[in-house]
Deep mutational scan, measured.
Amino acid sequence: GKMTGIVKWFNADKGFGFITPDDGSKDVFVHFSAIQNDGYKSSDEGQKVSFTIESGAKGPAAGNVTSL
């Protein structure tokens, strides 16, 4: 299901970062391709987002990331 969290950091040059879930669980990796914004796929530190957890090649990753 959908979770909410805060972007801990995001490196636009490398195209990835981490989200800290609101439920206190482990930080989740986020790749720019998962960000659902139109246009520039980046996110700012401290941005509140909703997301799903997908199982990626390197473990859990955020999917369907949407700014709230």
Rank of each mutant, 00 (worst) to 15 (best):
S50L: 08
S50A: 09
G1M: 12
A12V: 12
K48A: 11
G5F: 06
D27K: 02
P21I: 05
D23N: 09
G24K: 05
K48P: 09
S55C: 15
A34T: 06
G1H: 13
N64A: 07
H31G: 04
K41C: 14
D13P: 02
E45H: 14
I19H: 02
W9C: 10
V30P: 00
D38M: 14
N11S: 10
K2M: 12
F10S: 00
F16M: 03
N11H: 07
V49Y: 04
D27N: 06
L68M: 10
K48T: 07
Q36I: 14
S42M: 13
G46F: 11
Q47R: 11
V49H: 00
A57L: 13
G63D: 06
D38S: 14
N37R: 10
D22R: 00
V65T: 00
G59C: 09
G63H: 14
G59M: 03
S67I: 15
W9G: 03
F29N: 01
F51K: 00
S25L: 05
G15A: 02
A34I: 04
G63L: 12
G63S: 13
G56V: 04
I35N: 03
G1L: 13
V49S: 01
T52A: 03
K14Q: 07
I19V: 03
V30I: 09
F16N: 00
W9T: 01
N11C: 10
I6Q: 07
I53Y: 10
G56E: 07
V7S: 00
G24E: 02
K48N: 06
T4L: 07
A57E: 12
D13S: 13
G59K: 05
G24I: 02
T52W: 07
V7Y: 05
A61I: 15
G46W: 10
G46I: 09
N11V: 02
S67G: 09
K26Q: 13
F32A: 11
A34V: 09
T52F: 08
G15C: 08
V30G: 00
G1W: 08
D38N: 12
F51T: 02
K8H: 06
P60M: 09
E54H: 14
T20W: 05
T20R: 13
G24Y: 03
G1N: 13
S33A: 06
Q36H: 10
H31A: 05
V65W: 01
K8Q: 04
I19D: 00
L68V: 11
D13M: 12
N37V: 11
K26G: 11
I35H: 03
D27V: 05
D22E: 06
F18H: 02
N37E: 11
V30H: 02
T52G: 02
G15M: 04
G56A: 08
G56Y: 09
S43T: 15
S25H: 06
A62D: 01
G1E: 12
G15V: 04
S43N: 09
P60W: 08
Y40C: 14
A34C: 08
